[in-house]
Structures are given as C-alpha cells and as structure tokens.
C-alpha cells in the first residue's frame, strides 16, 4: 500500500506516493529519474549512492524512503546552478583530474559537499574521514583528496 511523503529535493518541494519498502536510492533513480546517484554495492559499503539528507552524508541505498518525509535532500544534480554552472567541488574534480571511470565521483562529491557544509576549512584528516565510506577502485584517492582540498581556493 502506497503512502504519501512530502520533502525537499534539491530545493524543490516534492509530494509523492511511495511504497514503504523503497529506499531513497530506488526512489531517486526509478521515480525521479535522477541517475546521478549510483548504486554500487547496495549494502552501505561503497558510498556510490551518497546523498545529503539534512546536511548529513548518508547512503541512499540504506535510507528508508518514508524517513525522508519532511527532510531536505540534496543529490549530485542539485549542486550546479540552474544556468549549468558547476559547484566549486565539481570544478575542482575536473581540474585536478580526480575522475577516472567516474562511478564513485557523484558519491565522493556529495561526501565532500557535506564536509564543506560542516567545516569551512577542512584539513587533510577531515577530508580522509569524510570519504572513508567512499570506495574508488581506479584512482588510489590521491587526486580525489587533492581536489577536495583545493576546492575551497576555486570558490574564491
């Protein structure tokens, strides 16, 4: 039996009928057709599905959709400006070459986004802690950490 939820998704109010057993990830990808959020493992291990709920990075694959009611959700699609201008973290990933296959990238960027929401000037330790739940099997993380570290500079 479907239930109604109301929440903010990337700044806009969404009212939707959802199945109680859906996860936030299923809803984003299959109902809202927002395919930027990836499904890697589906068990909260890889972080490819990371989105930000009420300013906290969470695994969308383990987030019951009904718990989203009344909350503010931001996905990778919500970071760029309406005119298409990218967020400073996104720009930094491109300029530092922090993307290889790209599958982990949206999750990495959302974890970095949550970090910048929490801390204005994160140091390397903060960055490593913020992305410890995001697996990347291509890069070895060096460029990713660099991109997150230098993102602030690009904002200014």
């Amino acid at each position: 039996m479907k239930k109604e939820i109301k929440f903010h998704l990337n700044g806009e109010e969404v009212v939707a009928e959802v199945e109680p057993h859906w996860t936030l990830l299923y809803f984003l990808r299959n109902v809202m057709k927002l395919k930027g959020t990836k499904e890697g493992c589906g068990y909260g291990e890889c972080g490819a599905c990371t989105v930000v709920v009420d300013k906290r990075a969470v695994n969308a694959c383990l987030y019951p959709i009904l718990e989203v009611d009344g909350k503010k959700v931001i996905t990778i699609e919500g970071l760029s400006k309406p005119d298409g201008q990218l967020h400073f973290i996104q720009k930094s990933f491109i300029e530092e070459g922090a993307v290889q296959c790209g599958f982990c990238t949206p999750g990495m960027i959302m974890s970095a986004y949550a970090l910048y929401e929490e801390k204005e000037n994160p140091d390397e330790e903060d960055i490593k802690e913020a992305i410890e739940g995001n697996l990347c099997r291509c890069t070895g993380y060096i460029k990713i950490v660099q991109a997150i570290k230098s993102a602030k500079r690009r904002q200014q």
């Binding site: 909260g44 990075a57 987030y63 992305i131 410890e132």
Partner: peptide, 9 residues
C-alpha cells in the same frame, strides 16, 4: 565505527 555515512544514521 563504519564510515561517516554509517555514523550519520
């Protein structure tokens, strides 16, 4: 425990 994402829920 776990990761930031896990500790957040």
């Amino acid at each position: 425990l776990g990761s930031k994402q896990i500790r957040n829920v």
